[in-house]
Design a protein around this nucleic acid. Structure first.
Length: 486
DNA sequence: TGCCTCGTTGCGTAA
DNA sequence: ATTACGCAACGAGGC
């Protein structure tokens, strides 16, 4: 897993705040270093553990790890008590209610959860009971500093990559942020995600995603608070565009991801269309570092690298650009870059959204392509966002800041930024490539359709003639080459 | 089977 | 400002 400096900092701050809050409750945080399967058996013995309790997780790495820890606990006579609390609903329950399959449309998902009982959000205890400290035995180190939170210096190996600490980690900041957002009840009630700006200078949305991801904020608590507010405002927006709708998107992707351990890759992924993406390390590098020559795209990618958060629609614009829109590079590559840079990096949400944007799964209207020029203009016609994150273009007038190649050479000199010298020429011509790529998408969908409708026929056929090309193609398209199995 | 509607957030152009 | 249409046309789900 790639973890950039900004997310390491967020984790460190979250741990420090958690420790602080626990100390107010008559306890503290004990941070133990090492691999769970090696460390837990030692702790069971050293601390005379009777009960191990933790939150369940759907990510394959965590599922495997937790299964091993459970076995070790059983062997040590430790009772295990797990809770599904990271999401509002239990993904497994939704899958069970949908005849063993995760719903692949949001509306279908909603129709299922609307019939489910809403789990309670727990209240915070005023104080933990005494005796919640670990028992020390003769071998225990007296210096409890070994259990202290890691420091920033210990976690952040490349401090030069740290940006402004715009979104500090921790529950305290999470609750402060939530209250600040919920304070304007009319705004909450009217919220419609498509009408929020991806390129405002300050976030136009709540930026609670990093806090939900790290468990600083409970999705159930936020959901309950939203419902309380909506009850007072009968005329309110609704899923999928409302704030509750945003939480439901999170649930939607968690449910889909829980049903497929290959959710984060194309091959062997039951949801993903198989598309012949092409490798292009120069283009990938230019995209990842904000050097595509498209100011709107570059501004977004630079904001991501500096601050660790970009608006959801900004993610749409750059994800479409990397994949089906312009560069025709695999969504897995984009996923890797986001994984490193996003504070709110989440296995299920990152993969699910990349599949959505690349029209590989869940979303299929691939002829709807975001324009790297026009899209940003709708909410920032003057280009203030570009001037902030691509400062070399700061002197370009509104008329051509989204399309600097339209400025004459003498004008470029006048604005203090010559293309090819101070800022890159655009690496592709959107008007040309996006039309080619729509045709490529059409062809990929056609192959997928043929493979799908010819399935039974091929199944019989392949028994008799192993190794033919059609069989191979189908194996790829249906995920037969899966490497990761649960 | 086939047909229809709908789908979180497209763009460019026209009225 | 808002709406409609062509673009060339997807899959899921329901009947």
């Amino acid at each position: 897993m790639q973890v950039g400096a900004n997310r390491w900092r967020f984790l460190q701050q979250s741990l420090a705040d958690l420790d602080l809050q626990l100390r107010k409750l008559n306890s503290r945080l004990y941070v133990v270093h090492g691999k769970p399967i090696e460390v837990f058996p030692q702790l069971f013995e050293r601390w005379h553990v009777h009960l191990l309790t933790y939150e369940t997780d759907i990510e394959p790495y965590a599922v495997t790890r937790d299964a091993t820890v459970q076995k070790l606990a059983a062997a040590a006579g430790v009772k295990v008590d797990t809770h599904c609390s990271h999401t509002i609903y239990n993904p497994e329950l939704i899958i069970a209610r949908n005849m063993g399959k995760a719903p692949v449309t949001y509306q279908k998902f909603l129709s299922i959860v609307e019939k489910l009982k809403l789990p309670k959000a727990l209240d915070v205890l005023p104080r933990l009971p005494d005796g919640m400290q670990p028992v020390k035995d003769a071998n225990e180190v007296n210096d409890t500093k070994v259990y202290d939170c890691p420091t920033l210096e210990q976690l952040v190996k490349r401090p030069e990559e740290l940006g402004d600490n715009k979104f500090p980690g921790g529950e305290t900041e999470a609750l402060r942020r939530m209250e600040a957002s919920l304070d304007d009840e009319v705004w909450v009630a009217k919220f419609e995600k498509p009408n929020t700006a991806p390129n405002s200078l300050e976030p136009s949305t709540t930026v609670l995603s990093p806090y939900l991801k790290f468990g600083c904020l409970s999705a159930r608590l936020l959901h309950r608070r939203l419902q309380d507010i909506l009850a007072r405002h009968p005329k309110h927006s609704k899923p999928p565009v409302s704030l509750v709708g945003q939480l439901m998107w999170r649930e939607f992707y968690y449910t889909a991801a829980a049903a497929d351990p290959n959710f984060d890759r194309m091959l062997g992924n039951a949801y993903s269309l198989q598309i012949p993406w092409q490798e292009n390390s120069d283009h990938l590098e230019a995209w990842a570092h904000g050097r595509t020559g498209y100011p709107f795209i570059d501004a977004i990618m630079r904001q991501l690298r500096q601050e660790g958060w970009i608006h959801h629609l900004a993610r749409h614009a750059v994800a479409c650009f990397l994949t089906r829109g312009d560069l025709w590079i695999s969504w897995e590559e984009g996923q890797r870059v986001f994984e490193q840079l996003l504070l709110d990096q989440d296995w299920a949400l990152n993969a699910g959204n990349w599949m959505w944007l690349s029209a590989s799964a869940f979303f299929h209207q691939y002829f709807r392509v975001y324009s790297p020029v026009a899209f940003g203009k709708k909410t920032d016609s003057t280009g203030a966002y570009i001037r902030k994150y691509v400062p070399e273009l700061a002197k370009y007038p509104a008329g051509c800041i989204y399309e600097p190649w339209k400025a004459t050479l003498s004008a470029q000199r006048e604005y203090g930024c010559v293309l090819g010298v101070d800022y890159p020429h655009r690496i592709v011509d959107h008007d040309v490539v996006h039309k080619e790529n729509i045709k490529r998408m059409s062809a990929a969908y056609k192959v997928n359709r043929e493979v799908r409708t010819g399935k039974e026929e091929v199944d019989e056929y392949e028994l008799k003639s192993q190794g033919n090309a059609k069989r191979k193609a189908r194996a790829v398209a249906t995920g037969r080459t899966a490497k990761r199995k649960r």
